[in-house]
Design a binder for these strands. Sequence first.
DNA 1: TGTACATCAGTGAACGCGCGTTCACTGATGTAC
DNA 2: TGTACATCAGTGAACGCGCGTTCACTGATGTAC
Lengths: 207, 207
Amino acid sequence: MRSRRDRYHHGDLRNALVAAATELARAGGPEAVVLREAARRVGVSATAAYRHFDNRQDLLLAVKLAAQERLADAMAGAVAAGAALSDRGEEAERRLLAMARGYIGFALAEPGLYRSAFQHQDLPPKEPGRHPRARSYAMLAEVLDELLAAGRMPASRRPYAEIAAWSPLHGLCLMFLDGSLALPGDEQRDEVIERVLDVVAAGLRHT
Amino acid sequence: MRSRRDRYHHGDLRNALVAAATELARAGGPEAVVLREAARRVGVSATAAYRHFDNRQDLLLAVKLAAQERLADAMAGAVAAGAALSDRGEEAERRLLAMARGYIGFALAEPGLYRSAFQHQDLPPKEPGRHPRARSYAMLAEVLDELLAAGRMPASRRPYAEIAAWSPLHGLCLMFLDGSLALPGDEQRDEVIERVLDVVAAGLRHT
DNA sequence: TGTACATCAGTGAACGCGCGTTCACTGATGTAC
DNA sequence: TGTACATCAGTGAACGCGCGTTCACTGATGTAC
């Protein structure tokens, strides 16, 4: 591994650049992703990056996707951290809440990555396989299907329920991050989170 | 008015710069706000801007506040556009929905301004009077109080209900704008909006 | 197994860019007397 | 009513900045024969 790095041909430069750029995003958000700096950190000339990315925007897209992966990991991790419940409906609700908490926790713990994951892109997505949030979206869809199957959600609520359930979390996190919500103290913040989750859960349950 | 502009002393340069910068934001989002360009458009040297703003960030803050004002206008306009209902509870619900639709409509019609209104700011807000979203927040608070008073919302839902009601709209709009939601066609988009509003309304109503 | 050569993946110097910001300045304004 | 002068609100030239990106190039690799 060490010997590979020392060689003229890096061997895994694309991934190394994405990792370095992602670290920049982690520290300072998407604006902080500087192609030259990423190359510098990998110990490679800036030009070398152009072997693997069309331009800075393209690198930023890779960072976006990496950040989305980490977000999905946080959600999956939160689900896995709790014990499964025997009742099907209760288990579905537990998982939904765990995902939500994992999501919010990630946003608050890694604001730079979170903002990068939802960073505005002018370009239309070219490759369908790269579609944003595919994994976390699928996780959410599955749990909503379970909720429906267990009779904890009316069928009329199912269409676009992913988006209805997701939007409040996303909006809340961004309001925390952009300073729109000036909340002093953690316990007040936690209380807000609880209120928002309550409303979402009730909204999905009732018609 | 014309004569004032021609004079060496502009007379209202601060507002003129904010207007020009806001137009830039309207066209291209907050990133497109360029201090020199705003000065150029007003017909003044770039240096003159420093009489009225500490730096670019300060100008951007003014744009943010201006965008928030326009958003509040859109919400108020949507409320005023409909006829008041005689029943107190129904009227409160009508207003809540009108505000929500005004909000979403603004975000979709003016994405550049909308993004500017919620643009990430590193600086802590210095002047309390400048606090973000004060006006629209107050509008929302009033209508939620009405809902509670009319018995359309349980008291347990009232705390932080502004945030719970707002977050879904905010999240939804940003997902539309950042391309996370690839929705072909307007009618599909409208359907998503309806689903989200349904869930919010049900969530506020039930416990 | 050895060699020729196309291809791949890097280098390093250079450029233009347009920005934000500073500087020393000057023209206009309004107030004191 | 007129003048002196402090203050306010502009000017225009200049700078540094660090970036993204291009260019002509060279060293390493792997495949054909």
